[in-house]
């Protein structure tokens, strides 16, 4: 029993099955705590009044949109380098959730921008690079869907993911490199130190909740992919016999 054991789809299928309830319940619990902090503990902002409360989903969603992409790029690189089947499956399992978080980041940004900037959308460097990220996710998913040969699709998708990874530092540093309407990373947290702490804690709790949610849904998705790809093997036949 070593780390490589978990790289085998059959072991991972069962491990994932055991982990899913834990991540699901942790995500639910943290979301409840996070929402409570966001709406009932965090005080009114002296500049933005209650509109700032969008931050508790906007920032975690934006972090997730970038982080999931990096994890996908990591699995893609591992898959290309070592030809490990499970790595490509993990990348495929993460992409839809990454796309959803990117959409949420853009959507909540628009609904925050409208009352604060007076515009739903501006072609600002931060916003534009995040929109490109959404197109990358959609493009990668479409590429996988378009290539019938699973191995070729896996490799093409991984390659596109790695090329697109250049966009992640662009998003992250866009507020420094260009003069953007989007605020810098630290401004919202240093306005008033006394309230910054609870805002930060609320945001972090929501971010961890988003992480656990992502892990839970990605594990459910990867289990489906494993069954699909290993359908000729005896263990899948046994599982289908038992579960359906």
């Amino acid at each position: 029993m070593n780390l490589y054991t978990f790289a085998s789809p059959v072991t991972f299928y069962h491990l994932a099955g055991k982990l899913i309830p834990w991540f699901t319940w942790s995500a639910i619990l943290l979301t409840v705590v996070g929402l409570y902090l966001s709406f009932f503990v965090a005080p009114t902002d002296f500049q933005q009044s209650e509109a700032y409360r969008i931050i508790f989903i906007h920032v975690p969603a934006a972090w997730m949109s970038m982080f999931i992409y990096l994890v996908m790029a990591f699995w893609g690189a591992i898959g290309l380098a070592f030809n490990t089947r499970l790595s490509f499956m993990m990348a495929r399992a993460l992409a839809p959730t990454g796309a959803i978080f990117t959409f949420i980041a853009l959507w909540t940004g628009a609904w925050w921008g409208k009352p604060m900037w007076g515009a739903w959308w501006v072609w600002d460097a931060r916003l534009t690079s995040e929109l490109i990220l959404l197109f990358l996710y959609v493009g990668i998913i479409a590429l996988w869907a378009a290539i019938d040969d699973i191995k070729r699709g896996d490799r093409a998708g991984a390659l596109l993911t790695l090329i697109g990874a250049i966009n992640i530092p662009i998003i992250y540093f866009s507020v420094k490199w260009w003069n953007t309407l989007h605020q810098g990373a630290s401004i919202s947290l240093t306005k008033a130190p006394s309230m910054a702490k609870i805002m930060l804690i609320g945001m972090l709790v929501m971010a961890i909740a988003a992480w656990f949610y992502t892990i839970a849904v990605a594990l459910v998705r990867v289990r489906g992919i494993i069954l699909e790809r290993e359908r000729q093997s005896e263990w899948v036949k046994e599982i289908l016999e038992r579960e359906t």
Partner: peptide, 18 residues
Amino acid sequence: MGGYGLYVWGSYGVTALC
């Protein structure tokens, strides 16, 4: 939400829906 209800709930509502 201090007059920002549409924007706050528009954000949280669509996130929950997604």
